[in-house]
């Protein structure tokens, strides 16, 4: 289990990284924390000719409030997501999900930008990016653009990042007073990829649900919004009947792939149970 040979570059600015990538053509791969990429290289599932190490680019670091948005640098490590007070306050679903991301040593090195770019459908951070309605800041040699999470996760390990672009930061709209949220996942062992996971962010006004984002992961090729379940909650008071109604719809929102060990029926069942528990949790927060 040894990676194929490759060469290595360590740019110190974003522009240098982009140019290095452009010069190398498509046979280059960025590495930040490398916690998903290195095993793939060791297994020879991937074999880039050039590894571009972006971990030393200062501009990709840092967490700061920018108006109504929290800007989280792509190099922010999972362990920092777990402990950063700004993230805990303004992007609480990341904070809630962080303890479930793999194990301490992985969290010490893995980066949020890497996780979102990699876009593993079983990963917590891509799903919570979608749940919080964040925007992804992508930089290329020709400029910068921001892509809404709803438009970002396209298919299995496929995102809106174009070749030559680099994810530099995540912008999360900060939590407002009417917001309630909950996160949980069912996993067979601590730190395993979830059988099913979910984050819920709901905004209440006068006791009624004004907006809801319910995002599941480990249920398909990308993180998935349970749109029918979301829709049925809008304008409602969150009570047992509303929870049951959302639960009844969630099975139809999801289309899990065939899997011998975790069949679609089981995924749907677990999703219903999980949604019930999360909405119940939010219901109790309000009372």
């Amino acid at each position: 289990m040894k990676a194929r040979a490759f060469s290595y570059a360590r740019p110190s600015t974003v522009m240098e990284a982009l140019e290095t990538f452009a010069d190398a053509g498509e046979d280059a791969s960025y590495v930040a924390g490398g916690q998903s990429l290195v095993p793939a290289l060791a297994l020879r599932l991937q074999a880039p000719q050039l590894l571009i190490d972006i971990a030393h680019i200062e501009a990709l670091r840092g967490v700061e409030l920018q108006g109504g948005w929290l800007r989280i640098g792509a190099l922010t490590r999972h362990c920092e997501v777990l402990t950063d007070p700004l993230i805990a306050r303004h992007a609480p679903l990341y904070h809630a999900a962080a303890p479930h991301v793999a194990h301490p040593a992985i969290r010490n090195r893995g980066t949020i930008g890497g996780s979102i770019s990699h876009s593993d459908p079983a990963s917590e951070f891509p799903a919570m990016t979608l749940a919080m309605g964040a925007e992804l800041e992508l930089v290329s040699r020709t400029g910068t653009r921001r892509v809404a999470a709803d438009d970002f996760f396209i298919d299995l390990f496929q995102t809106a990042i174009e070749p030559g672009e680099l994810l530099v930061a995540i912008h999360v709209p900060v939590i407002r007073p009417g917001h309630r949220w909950a996160f949980h996942e069912f996993a067979r062992r601590r730190g395993d990829y979830a059988l099913v996971g979910c984050g819920v962010l709901a905004e209440f006004s006068d006791g009624l649900i004004e907006q809801a984002r319910i995002v599941f992961f480990s249920v398909g090729n990308t993180p998935l919004r349970a749109r029918q379940a979301e829709q049925c909650l809008i304008g409602k008071r969150l009570d047992e009947a509303a929870v049951a109604a959302a639960q009844a719809l969630v099975g139809g929102d999801l289309d899990p792939p065939e899997d011998e060990h975790v069949p679609p029926a089981m995924k749907r069942h677990l999703a219903r149970v999980l949604l019930g528990r999360l909405l119940g949790q939010i219901m109790r927060q309000d009372s």
């Binding site: 990676a3 916690q35 290195v38 040593a105 992985i106």
Partner: peptide
Amino acid sequence: CEMGVCGACLVVVDGRVVHSCLMF
């Protein structure tokens, strides 16, 4: 395991414990 699952290769890098098999 050489893929970051077993924890036998942990070392301290810049003050943090990480898998030495998941780093070149």
